[in-house]
Design a protein around this nucleic acid. Structure first.
Length: 819
DNA sequence: ACCGCCGGGTGCC
DNA sequence: ACCGCCGGGTGCC
């Protein structure tokens, strides 16, 4: 196996919330940071220093062979007993080919061990003997290390050729970048293969299949059973040859049994049919060579859709077939391997899986017949424990369900393709060299290769897809209205007070050039303004703005408030060290949030001066601040009062009810406290409602969804939904009206939420109302939303400096500051 | 390896 | 001859 190239999570750049180029769907700062943190520095921040010829020796001692033009890996062997500078040469499959000649190895060892450059090898020409062969070495790294590397080589008598311009990142004009961006966006479009036809469900399935479901079923059967070669493999005489890496092998390359269902229509239902058909051993489908050692189907999903799976199995059960479905969840879960492998289907969550991982996990011992990853984008960060846990599962067939397979960039795909074992790209080095770097640098061929790879393993249908010119499904239309809200004079006065204070502070930061250093403050200011737009009681009492002569106690109190603000405001913060949701949150003096154990580790490994991984301010262990237990939820002892936005919503709801009693509505806000505020007038007006937010247990959540979806006449007609909880997978088709109470930073987040009801199964026309307060930060947010798409495209090739300034410009736009 | 390097054998032309 | 030259043994790191 290859030693992977190491990099540090501290290498990422500062990220903004408003226009980050990393994640067009980012809704929290941390998501953006996570996106950046997982960016491999060598993959797209790197430049080509130059190339040189080297020699691979010792061929006769090893079995690994290479073809002309084949890429080889260079792996340091510091433990080599003969030479601690040894550099091993291996082919794509990891078979050793030989070593780099020792003089050159000495120079390379110095460069590689100090992370000055990453070295890649290609064997362009053959050899005329059995002992050694030439190899072309390319040195890649950060611009600032170029001179060091060149000198280190020169010192030992090696010269880098720089004239050969193989790096194509340079000549990127703007429109070309846009073209690429579009091509990338469309990666998953047009992947319809209608030739597979439709397949009837087996007798085991009680509900009849819709045409698009039949089609998916048949595609899946083909993917599990057709024996075609994986993408870029072809047969050449007796050998199998990979045209991207030029690797060849006598053995048939392992094919991918499975794929990605990048579909937003009834994925789980299809999979339910699928596993029922195959796990139930349906006799009408004889063409599956069963692996006798393989066992059950394992389904891994986020907690939020667990109940959906259980429902699906429930719903599609035909009474005469006994299907064992086991929910591997909760502290009482049965960890017996024997028991688990005797099931037809085992369902678990990513969290349970990663908690078990490395801890005698029974799930990792079983050879599953099939593993299904639901909401596959949950594992898009390859460094996360979850992803590692998932990649270690043993299975003969592998499936990924994801409505959004690509969230922001190419690298999101790696974990997915690695899970599918799409050789050789399940090894990062080959993925980076052959796909990721070329694509990031704007290489058309790289993008085409990526498209081919994805195409081969993906079934993509959207609600607008067509088969043979006919739409797969016909959804009712959707209308979106923006309703302007005017603040009352009192609200306006309070708003303007907060606004002018905020402007003053931010102006100072802008003048000092310290906007990014004080980002948490800026966020806090914006947050307060947004809250003011919703309801005067939403903003928490502020300890006023930051006078610089604050006592340590005051400072601490302010930090606690900031932390609470961040954690309570409906943004699911993630720790940018472990890239997971924060556990045991602490806040640094520079106001960044981490898990306590994570940041403690950072501090202990950085001797002398520890620096904040996000802003590089000095941090100290004893200055980390924890949020104390919530004394009183909300602290709303005051008399309830209304707000203009509340009035606007209530007016709509009452009018609708008058018109048609049966209409159901989603009322969506980013602020859970606003949802709480809304409960009072809803009760007063006699509305029956349920509430769904991130704090609820799975059981409660499932209950609420079921209640809301039920068609009983005395059931709830309104769901109060926190934007965060309204993620993908949720099915709320009982609602036909959506009220978005406050604008999100990212329009895609709003779209996603709307799609909870505008999806397969919706019978009515969907009406969306967005409330925007006139002359407020909300209007400016809408401007930013519109600008955002443009910025993302520009940022595809923009320098980090221009990104920084556009971020500051955004803040100025939001605060209407002109300097 | 049809090389380079090592070290022993050898020694006018 | 404390050299050169020859030819056999040998060989990744």
């Amino acid at each position: 196996m290859f030693r992977r190239w190491g990099w540090s999570f501290r290498d990422f750049e500062e990220i903004d919330l408003f226009s980050d180029r990393y994640d067009t769907n980012a809704q929290t700062l941390s998501q953006a940071i996570r996106a950046a943190a997982t960016e491999e520095p060598d993959a797209d921040g790197s430049v080509l220093f130059g190339q040189m010829k080297g020699t691979v020796v010792g061929l006769r001692y090893y079995t690994g062979v290479v073809n002309r033009g084949e890429m080889v890996g260079l792996v340091r062997q510091p433990q080599n007993p003969y030479d601690r500078n040894a550099v091993m040469v291996a082919n794509v499959y990891g078979h050793q080919v030989g070593h780099i000649k020792k003089e050159l190895a000495a120079a390379m060892a110095q460069i590689m061990d100090n992370n000055l450059a990453k070295v890649e090898g290609v064997v362009y020409s053959g050899t005329n003997n059995a002992f050694s062969m030439p190899v072309t070495l390319s040195f890649w790294g950060k611009e600032e290390n170029k001179e060091n590397v060149t000198k280190a080589l020169a010192r030992r008598g090696f010269r880098l050729e720089t004239s050969v311009g193989s790096g194509s990142g340079s000549g990127g004009n703007f429109s070309f970048f846009l073209q690429l961006k579009n091509a990338f966006d469309n990666l998953f479009e047009g992947l319809m293969e209608s030739k597979d036809g439709e397949k009837e469900a087996a007798d085991a399935v009680s509900t009849p299949l819709l045409p698009h479901q039949k089609q998916a079923l048949s595609w899946m059967c083909a993917r599990e059973n057709k024996s075609s070669l994986p993408p870029f493999w072809e047969k050449r005489g007796e050998l199998y040859y990979n045209s991207l890496t030029c690797f060849s092998s006598k053995e048939v390359p392992e094919r991918v049994r499975g794929g990605i269902l990048a579909d937003d229509m009834g994925l789980r239902s299809i999979l339910t049919h699928f596993s029922r058909v195959f796990s139930g051993g349906d006799p009408t489908i004889p063409d599956i060579p069963e692996d006798p050692s393989a066992t059950a189907t394992l389904i891994v999903c986020p907690l939020s859709v667990l109940s959906n799976w259980l429902d699906q199995f429930e719903q599609h059960v035909s009474v005469n077939v006994k299907l064992n479905v086991y929910l591997y969840y909760g502290s009482e879960r049965n960890r017996s391997e024997k028991f688990l492998s005797s099931q037809d289907v085992v369902i678990t969550t990513y969290n349970v899986l990663s908690a078990d991982f490395g801890n005698k996990s029974p799930l990792h011992k079983i050879n599953w017949l099939r593993v299904v990853l639901d909401e596959g984008h949950f594992i898009r960060n390859p460094n996360a424990q979850m992803s590692k846990a998932v990649l270690e599962l043993k299975a003969s067939r592998r499936w990924i369900l994801s409505g959004t397979p690509i969230q922001n960039s190419v690298k999101d795909l790696w974990t997915l393709l690695a899970f599918l074992r799409l050789k050789p790209f399940d090894v990062r080095e080959w993925w980076n060299r052959v796909i990721q770097r070329p694509v990031t640098q704007g290489d058309r061929t790289g993008l085409q290769n990526l498209q081919t790879l994805v195409k081969c393993v993906t079934l993509r249908r959207t609600k607008t897809s067509e088969v043979n010119g006919r739409p797969l499904v016909v959804l009712p239309e959707k209308a979106v209205f923006v309703e302007q809200v005017e603040l009352s004079p009192e609200e306006r006065a309070e708003y303007e007070l907060a606004n002018s204070e905020g402007q003053k502070t931010i102006r100072r930061y802008v003048a000092e050039g310290s906007v990014l250093k004080n980002y948490a403050d800026v966020l806090a200011i914006l947050m307060r303004l947004r809250q003011h737009c919703c309801h005067p009681d939403l903003p928490t009492k502020s300890s006023s703005d930051s006078s610089s002569d604050a006592t340590p106690a005051e400072l601490r109190q302010r930090l606690i408030e900031k932390l609470r603000l961040v954690l309570v405001s409906g943004s699911d913060e993630e720790c940018s060290v472990c890239l997971d949701s924060v556990r045991f949150p602490v806040i640094t003096h520079c106001a960044h949030v981490y898990c306590r154990p994570c940041i403690a580790k950072v501090i202990s490994t950085q001797e002398e001066r520890a620096r904040c991984p996000l802003c590089r301010s000095d941090i100290r262990q004893n200055e980390l601040v924890e949020v104390p237990e919530e004394e009183d939820t909300g602290g709303n002892t005051k008399q309830w009062r209304t707000s203009s936005k509340v009035q606007a919503l209530m007016g709509n709801l009452l009018r609708l009810r008058l018109n048609d009693q049966s209409i159901k509505c989603l009322v969506v806000s980013q602020f859970t406290r606003f949802l709480t505020v809304l409960e009072t007038p809803l009760r007063e007006e006699g509305f029956s409602f349920v509430r769904l937010d991130g704090t609820m247990t799975q059981k409660r959540r499932a209950q609420v969804i079921q209640d809301f979806q039920s068609s009983s006449s005395d059931g709830p007609s309104i769901m109060l939904l926190s934007l965060k909880a309204g993620g993908v997978g949720l099915n709320l088709t009982a609602a036909s009206h959506v009220f978005l109470m406050d604008p999100a930073w990212n329009p895609a987040t709003e779209e996603q939420c709307i799609d909870r009801c505008h999806r397969l199964g919706q019978k009515k026309k969907v009406v969306v109302t967005k409330f925007i307060v006139k002359d407020s930060v909300e209007e400016n947010m809408v401007k930013i939303q519109k600008k955002k798409q443009d910025l993302v495209e520009k940022a595809f090739g923009a320098s980090s400096n221009s990104k920084k300034s556009s971020r500051i410009d955004d803040i100025k736009t939001l605060m209407e500051i002109t300097i």
